[in-house]
Amino acid sequence: MTALRNVWAVLLREVAAYFLSPVAWIVITLFLLVNGATFSYFTSYFQGHPRQITLVVESLFGFALFWILPLSPILTMRLFAEEKRTGSLELLMTAPVTEAHVALGKFLAAQAFYCLIWASLLPFFAILDVLGEPDWGPILTTYTGVVFLGLLTNALGCLASAWTRNQLVSAIVALSGNLLLFYVTLAQGLIPADAIEVQRVLHYLSFTHHFDGDFFQGSLDVRYLFFYGSLAASLIFLSVLSLEARKWR
C-alpha cells in the first residue's frame, strides 16, 4: 500500500514535469508533424480501396517505428541524470521511499508519456475509419507491440539515466542501445543463412522482424512480448541497483 502510494507520487510528479518541460512539447509537435505529413502523402491518391487502407496503416506505423529509436532516450534522459546534477536526488532519497519506488515511478511516468505520444496516431486511424473500413486487428496488435517494445526501450533509457548526471550522455547511451537492437536485423544478413540456430536467436532479438512478420499482420506472438517485458524488468532492476550504488562506494 505504502509502496503503491510512493510509486504513484513519483509518477504523478514526473508526468507533470513532462508537461512543464519544453522537450516534451517539441517531441509531440514533431511526432504529429511528421506523421501528419506521412499520412497526407499516403492518402493523397486515396480511393478507398481496402488494400490501400492497409498500406496507409502499415506506412504510418512503419515510419513511426523509427521514432522508437530516439523517442525513449529523449523521454528518459532527464529522469535521474537531472536529479543527480542538481542534487535533488538527495532530497528525494531522504524521503521515506525506497530506490525501487522511485525507479518504478519514474519508469512508469516515461512509459505513460510514451503511450500518450503514440496515442496521437489514433485520430489518423479514426479518419481512415470514416473514409473506408480499416482492419482494426493489425492496428491493435501493432499498438500492443509498440507498448511492449516501449517497456524495453524506456527501461533501457532509465538505466542510462541512472548511470550519469549528464542528460546528453544518458540519451546517447540509450540511443546506442536502441540502435544495437535495430542492427540485429542487419547482422542477420552478414551471417550465413544456414547457421540456423544463430539466425533464430537473431530473429528472436530483432524487433523490426517482430513488427514486419507479426504485429503488422495482426498476430500477437506472446514470446516477443515476454522478451520485451522480461528484459525491461531486468533493466529496471539494474537501475535500482545503480541508484543504490552510491551507498557502496
Binding site: 502510494r5 507520487a9 510528479r13 507533470a16 512543464l20 542534487g87 535533488s88 532530497l91 531522504t94 524521503a95
Partner: peptide, 30 residues
C-alpha cells in the same frame, strides 16, 4: 520519517509551483 532535512544548496524542482511541490512532498512523506 522522523527527520526533516534541508540539503546544502536547497535542490528543489525549479519547474514546479511552491504549492505543487509541497503537495508532492506531502504525498511522498505519506
Amino acid at each position: 520519517r522522523a527527520t526533516g532535512y534541508l540539503p546544502e544548496g536547497v535542490p528543489l524542482y525549479p519547474e514546479m509551483r511552491v504549492g505543487e511541490y509541497l503537495r508532492f512532498r506531502a504525498r511522498l512523506k505519506g
